[in-house]
Amino acid sequence: MTIPVVVKTTHLNFSFRNGIKTLDDVNLEVPQGSIYGFLGPNGAGKTTTLRLLLGLLKNQDGKLELFGQQFSGHRLDILRRLGSLIEQPSLYLHLTAKENLEIYQLVYKTGKKRVNEVLELVGLAQTGRKKARQFSLGMRQRLAIAIALLNQPELLILDEPTNGLDPNGIIETRELIKKLNKEYNTTVIVSSHILNEVEKMATHLGIIHKGRMLFQGPLQELQQMKTRQSMLEIETNDNARAITILSSQYAVQEKENLLLLPYGNKQQTAGITQLLVREGLDVYAIHPRQSDLEQLFIEITSNNI
């Protein structure tokens, strides 16, 4: 049984006017009912991808499908079924929370009752005549989420929804996302540059770096993937002989005076060292090399300690 896919992009490429490729063959697949963590460092292409999904950028190359429909030609049908929050909250600061919602209540034709429901849901029902200008950043973010929830969307696209929030705000937003997903089966795409945060709520993960998808799949698959991608790096005094010795057991390759072979575990490393030493080779260095993915993780996590 295959789970239906809510968002699917095929060979998506995008360049801004300066000619630099922002997206390079991005194939996104978001399963229905998932919380899809879209992870990558700043400038990786997350917002560009999400803007393309909403039609805020004109698609240049590749296919964009939401709810099984091509975006071009079904823009209104698609937008009616989703809610979005892109970058900073989009609010009319001279209006109250209720007035901000009334604007979109008209656009989505949801009925007035829904305004109070979403205000209740995000905990802003008591703000009364207070203007959005006087709201804290956390309150603004919650109001923006309330707008995104007005039409009871099947898909919620949230771009860095916890950016700038205090720890409490981050937890509240996370709980809200989980609640929507669990109680209303809302599919959520949530982008972030913080691995730690996404891991706490996502069921699926997509990792983008420099415009390319490095990983996509269920969260559990990530661990296996990390192991699969790792390589052992060996430096000896005679690489040619070392290759002859090791090639019967391992897929060895030589790269810039280093030998590379797929990393298994610590025992494997010790066994290889012993084997090479027994054959009279000098082993200068032997250690697991970080994969692109791990490199990326360090980048993602170290930026945000």
Partner: peptide
Amino acid sequence: QVEYKNNTWKQVFASPLS
């Protein structure tokens, strides 16, 4: 300018309006 100042154009264009 109301849309530019509040950075709301994106929400307007992402809503189901032609």
